[in-house]
Structure formats: structure tokens, C-alpha cells
Design a protein around this nucleic acid. Structure first.
Length: 654
DNA sequence: TTAGGGTTAG
């Protein structure tokens, strides 16, 4: 328009200025402001008003006030915008003064002015200020509307103010505002954030009408309180009632599943979302990717990556960091690094994600390089960065370096050691056989060690067959986690390794009298877009006979090459042949067996296990990698084992 | 025909 020689008029300028009222467009907005000044429209009330709004929206209060001061005719709209702007920035007195000044100029505030003031205070987290205004407003005879209430409520939950929330709810009922859809979702949101899901459900049962906003608030709130099943039920009810769900609804329910261990469900919901015609966005993808990462569903993760590229959101830092994490956890550290390198901007989460990936893969050197590089790039490591670098040192056996980083953390970086750091150092020391030092450090910890710390010590006591310390750690663990059978198993393993059979039986009796059974070993493998789950000793898979046959054939080959089954890993008191059969039924072996059957020769296999990989399986899979000429990745609870040509990337140190 | 307030997902 300008190019063609036309000038905007007083009707067009406000619209243009409104379009500039965002942080990214403020620069253009300032240019338009100059144009307004030179063309003489700077005296028009509407143009001035829109300029005030633009600056307020961008938080540029000085500029907003400068324009405002020059105005001859200040409407209530303009006063309200300025007041709200100051309130949002936390200038409480200034906002209140201006509000009163407006009246002394003969301009009466309207509902929008009151709401703007309250919204401003709420956005700044100033609950008490918002409540004061609500009270004042009420006393002056102004009836609040749904906006007023939702503004006040929006700041209640974050401050754990359930009693105040309940009071406001009572006020809502008195004012007969409980059917307002904004009020309903604000109430749901408040109760969710205040940890009162029962109150949420009460609001839900009394809903005047099912709306997408209430669905979203319900799902988010139930999820926040860990009630996944309820969230899924509510979500289904909205779906069955043909309520048109939006991208927030679907993203919320997917996030709910991934955050509560329902990864397969998350993947199914993502598919359903697409079938329903709702397009995922830059929030959906980082909510979905952890599901792919958790169960190492690489194909699903890749599909989400391709989608992000097509949609032009793969450079988003949230998407990017989720991709780095997903590839890392799916055993594709090179792809993970590629995602990291191709991000135009990285935040601390991205740096920590790639570092954690290297740590999981036992690539301590690379993790340390990243740790140094991030600082050169101006990112200060946080406590998570240190957890990553310490666990990298753990996995890589870099005991000396790990101890140095631990010391530097508090001394040079001023970061107090947390539980996870102590757990890392316990592992670091005890894996290096320095069990006594580990125990001394635990005793000197400034807070009570948790089960992770004692568990790290106990596992290493098993490796080094240290009975006395193992007993100490186990005693602590029995108190901290009375129902965790794994600790009993570890202790009895320690006794068994020393041939202390009476103690072995004593521990097992204790276990069985408490009704504890070992957490069943469970492994996953993704084959052609499908995720298969295999349980230890479970023979229900349709191809189980073939799997066993294949493993037994390999077993014979291995024995010819001098391999001895390590039956120390079998706890049951059974005959040698039975022990071998039990070993054969370990879930990671079954998953590898299924992979061998169902994938082309020579292709890589990726298996995830819910427990630490067993020593015998480790030996067997090393053999399989050589004999079958396959790369095999096994992710256990601690790290990745990359088997190739008969060797493992962990160097048999895990 | 032009200027105003609020929520929900990482």
C-alpha cells in the first residue's frame, strides 16, 4: 500500500498497530509509530489508544505512558490498558494510583477496567492484591463476571491456597456464576493445582454443559494428581459425547499417559488424534516423544521427527531436546547428536539431554567434551548437568575424574550436592571396589541417604561379594523399601556367591513369608513398527517354540566355543539343567531371539529391559553378536550395552 | 469500518 503511494488513514492505522502488538513485531510497531507521527495521525484518539495498547502488550510501559501523557482525550479503554499494564509488571501502587486518578479525571471505570487490574495482578502472581480489588469492586457495587473470577482463580492453585479457592467457589455460587464456562474451567484448574481431585470431580458431575475447555482442565488436573485412569475415563466421556476436542485436549491426554508410565497408550492416542483430524503441533510432539523414548519405539520416534520436519517445528527447542533425548534412549546416539548439532538455538535442557545420552552409552569422553563446550557457549551447568557428567564418569569407569567433578560442583559452581549426586558417587566408588570409602561417604552425607544410594552400595557388594557391608546396606533398604524384592534377591546373591547357603535360605524364607516375589524381568523389542513385550519365563508368545529352538541351537554353538552358562544368576534351588533352562527364559534373551527370527540377517536389534541386564545374558548376547554378525543394543535400567563382534561397549563394567 | 479484560498442553 505504501509502495503504491497510498497512506493509511485513521481507520487503518489502529488495525496495523494492533497487528504489531507482539514481542517479535514490536520493531515494526515502532516504525509504524514514526510513520504515524510524521503523517500527523498522532493526535487521533483511536490511533493513540492502539499505540498505548501495543506498548502495554509488549511490556514497554515507559513508551506506553509517554503516548498516554500526550493524549487530550483519554477514554476509559485507554486508562484501563495502562492500569492493567502496570499491574501485570508488579507496580502495585502505580496501578492503584492510576486507577483512582482515572476517576478524578471524571472517567468512571467499567467492568473491563476492574478485570484488567485484577488480571494484571494475577498474571504477576499477586493473589492478595487481586483479592483486595475483588473485594473493593464488590463493595462498590460492581458485579463480577466470569472473567473476574477466572482471573482471580488462575493464581490460587499455584500458591496452594485451597481454603481461599473454596471461599471463592462459595462466592461464585452466591453470585450465580457457576454456569459460566470460563468459571467452570478455572474452578477445575484451581482444584487440580491445589491437589483436590475429588472437588474437581464434584464440579464435573454438576457441569451445566460439557465443553472442550472443561475437558482440558479435567485431564490436566487429574493427570497432575496422578489419576491417569480417571483422566482416560473423562476423556472418553467427552469423546463419546461427540464434544469437539482440540489439539490441547489430545496433547493433554497424551502428556498424561507419558508422564504416568502409559507409553503404549500414548502412542495409540497419538494415532487416534491424527485419525480424528486434529493436527499435532509443537507442544504435542515433545509430549509424545518421551513415550517413544521410554519404550525405545524408534520407528514411532522417527515418524514424529519426520512430522516435525514437514511441519517446520524441528528447530523448536522443546521439540529438539525431546528428539535428542528420544534418539539417545533408542540407542541412536549419532542421530541424537545430529539433532543437537542442527538446532539453531539450544537451551540448558538440550545440552543436558545430549550429555545424558552420552552417559547412557558409556561415552564418558564425549559427555565431558559437551560439559566443557556448553560452558564455552555461555551455559552455566545446573545440578542436572552434574548428574549427567557424574553418571558418565560412573559408566565409563572414570573414578578420579568423577570425584573431581563432584568436588568442583560445590566449590567452584556453588551447587549443593543432591541425593542423585551422592548416588552417583556411591556407584562410582563402589564399582571401583572402593566400598569402604563409599560407605564412609554415605555416613557423612548431610541428609538421610535414600534407597538409590544404599541400592548402589548393595549392588556393588554383590559384584565384590562383600558380605558385611552388603548386610548393612540391605538392612537399610529393608526399612526404606520393605516391599522391594530385588534387595532380598541381591543379598541372597551375595550369600550364595560365598556359599553361605543357610543365610541364602533364611533370606528367601523371609521373602516368601512376606509374600514378595521378584519383579518379573520384562523386555521390549520393536519390529516393523510393532512393539513386542516379553516376560521372563513367559511362554505365551506364538513364536516361542521357534525362539527357544533358536536360542538352544546358539547355546550348543556357544558351548562348542567354550562358553559356560553362569548359573550364579539363577536363584531358584534347582538342578543344573533346569537352571540353564531358566537362564534361557530371561526376557532379554527371548527378545533377542525374537529379533533374530523376525528381522533380516545382519540388521541391528534394539532391546530394552526393565531391570539390569543379567551377567549370563550379557555373555550370551556378546556371543550372538559375533556368531550372527549383528549389532545388538540392549538398554537396561542403567545404560546401553552395544554388542558388536563379540564385545560390549560397557567393557564388561556395568 | 477504528482502541479494552480471562484458561487449558511441554
Amino acid at each position: 500500500m505504501l509502495f503504491l503511494g497510498f497512506l493509511p488513514d485513521k481507520y487503518i492505522f489502529p488495525s496495523v498497530i494492533k497487528a504489531c502488538a507482539g514481542l517479535s513485531t514490536l520493531g515494526i510497531g515502532r516504525q509504524v509509530h514514526s510513520l504515524v507521527s510524521v503523517t500527523g495521525f498522532g493526535l487521533d484518539t483511536f490511533v493513540q489508544s492502539s499505540l498505548v495498547h501495543m506498548y502495554v502488550k509488549c511490556g514497554e510501559m515507559k513508551d506506553a505512558h509517554r503516548v498516554f501523557d500526550r493524549m487530550l482525550d483519554r477514554s476509559v479503554v485507554c486508562w484501563s490498558a495502562l492500569v492493567a499494564g502496570y499491574a501485570r509488571q508488579g507496580y502495585v501502587d502505580k496501578a492503584n494510583e492510576l486507577f483512582d486518578e482515572m476517576r478524578s479525571f471524571g472517567v468512571e471505570p467499567n467492568l473491563v477496567s476492574w478485570n484488567g487490574l485484577i488480571a494484571g495482578f494475577s498474571q504477576n502472581g499477586l493473589l492478595s492484591k487481586s483479592l483486595l480489588i475483588l473485594q473493593k469492586m464488590h463493595l462498590e457495587g460492581f458485579k463480577p463476571d466470569g472473567t473476574t473470577i477466572s482471573c482471580v482463580l488462575s493464581v490460587v492453585g499455584d500458591l496452594e491456597g485451597l481454603p481461599i479457592g473454596i471461599q471463592i467457589h462459595a462466592y461464585v455460587l452466591k453470585q450465580a456464576l457457576h454456569s459460566d464456562k470460563w468459571v467452570v474451567s478455572a474452578l477445575l484448574d484451581m482444584y487440580g493445582k491445589c491437589g483436590s481431585p475429588s472437588a474437581m470431580m464434584q464440579v464435573f458431575y454438576e457441569l451445566p454443559q460439557m465443553e472442550v475447555a472443561s475437558c482440558n482442565a479435567l485431564v490436566a488436573g487429574l493427570s497432575r494428581n496422578g489419576l491417569v485412569e480417571d483422566a482416560l475415563k473423562v476423556f472418553k466421556q467427552y469423546k463419546d459425547n461427540k464434544i469437539e476436542l482440540n489439539v490441547v485436549s489430545w496433547t493433554s491426554i497424551i502428556a498424561c499417559c507419558t508422564q504416568n508410565g502409559k507409553d503404549i497408550e500414548a502412542l495409540q492416542l497419538f494415532r487416534e488424534m491424527q485419525l480424528s483430524g486434529v493436527k499435532p503441533n509443537a507442544v504435542t510432539i515433545p509430549c509424545l516423544l518421551p513415550a517413544c523414548a521410554n519404550i525405545a519405539a524408534l520407528m514411532h520416534g522417527k515418524a514424529a521427527h519426520c512430522f516435525s520436519i514437514r511441519k517446520g517445528i524441528s528447530s523448536d527447542v522443546y521439540v529438539g531436546s525431546a528428539l535428542i533425548d528420544m534418539y539417545g534412549k533408542c540407542g541412536r546416539i549419532v542421530d541424537s547428536r545430529h539433532c543437537f548439532d542442527s538446532l539453531p538455538a539450544r537451551n540448558l535442557v538440550c545440552w543436558n539431554a545430549i550429555m545424558r545420552g552420552y552417559a547412557m552409552h558409556g561415552m564418558a569422553g564425549e559427555a565431558i567434551d559437551i560439559f566443557n563446550l556448553m560452558q564455552k557457549n555461555g551455559h552455566k551447568p545446573d545440578f542436572i548437568s552434574f548428574t549427567c557428567v557424574l553418571s558418565a564418569c560412573c559408566q565409563g569407569g572414570l573414578t578420579k575424574e568423577g570425584l573431581q567433578y563432584f568436588e568442583k560442583m560445590s566449590q567452584e559452581y556453588g551447587i549443593e550436592a543432591r541425593m542423585e549426586h551422592y548416588a552417583c558417587i556411591t556407584t562410582l566408588l563402589s564399582r571401583a571396589g572402593r566400598l569402604k570409602e563409599a560407605y564412609s561417604m554415605i555416613k557423612e552425607m548431610p541428609f538421610e541417604p535414600d534407597a538409590c544410594v544404599w541400592g548402589a552400595l548393595l549392588s556393588s557388594c554383590r559384584v565384590y561379594a562383600n558380605v558385611s557391608l552388603g548386610e548393612v546396606a540391605a538392612e537399610k533398604l529393608f526399612k526404606l523399601e520393605p516391599n522391594n524384592a530385588g534387595n532380598y534377591v541381591l543379598l541372597s546373591n551375595i550369600y550364595a556367591a560365598k556359599g553361605m547357603w543357610n543365610e541364602v535360605y533364611r533370606v528367601r524364607d523371609a521373602m516368601s513369608s512376606m509374600g514378595l516375589t521378584k519383579n518379573p524381568g520384562c523386555s521390549w523389542i520393536e519390529i516393523k513398527n510393532e512393539v513386542y513385550i516379553l516376560l521372563a519365563g513367559d511362554r505365551s508368545h506364538p513364536q516361542m517354540a521357534q525362539i527357544i529352538e533358536r536360542l538352544e541351537r546358539l547355546n550348543m554353538e556357544m558351548k562348542k566355543s567354550g562358553y559356560l552358562p553362569d548359573t550364579n544368576f539363577v536363584l531358584q534351588d534347582v538342578e543344573q539343567q533346569d537352571k540353564e533352562n531358566i537362564l534361557c527364559g530371561h526376557s532379554e534373551k527371548l527378545a533377542v531371539g525374537l529379533g533374530l527370527l523376525c528381522t533380516p540377517p545382519g540388521s541391528a536389534l534394539r532391546v530394552i529391559k526393565n531391570l539390569r541386564i543379567c551377567g549370563d545374558c550379557h555373555t550370551v548376547i556378546k556371543f550372538i553378536s559375533m556368531f550372527e554378525g549383528r549389532e545388538i543394543f540392549v538398554r537396561d535400567t542403567n545404560r546401553f550395552h552395544h554388542f558388536k563382534d563379540g564385545m560390549c561397549s560397557c567393557g564388561d563394567y556395568w
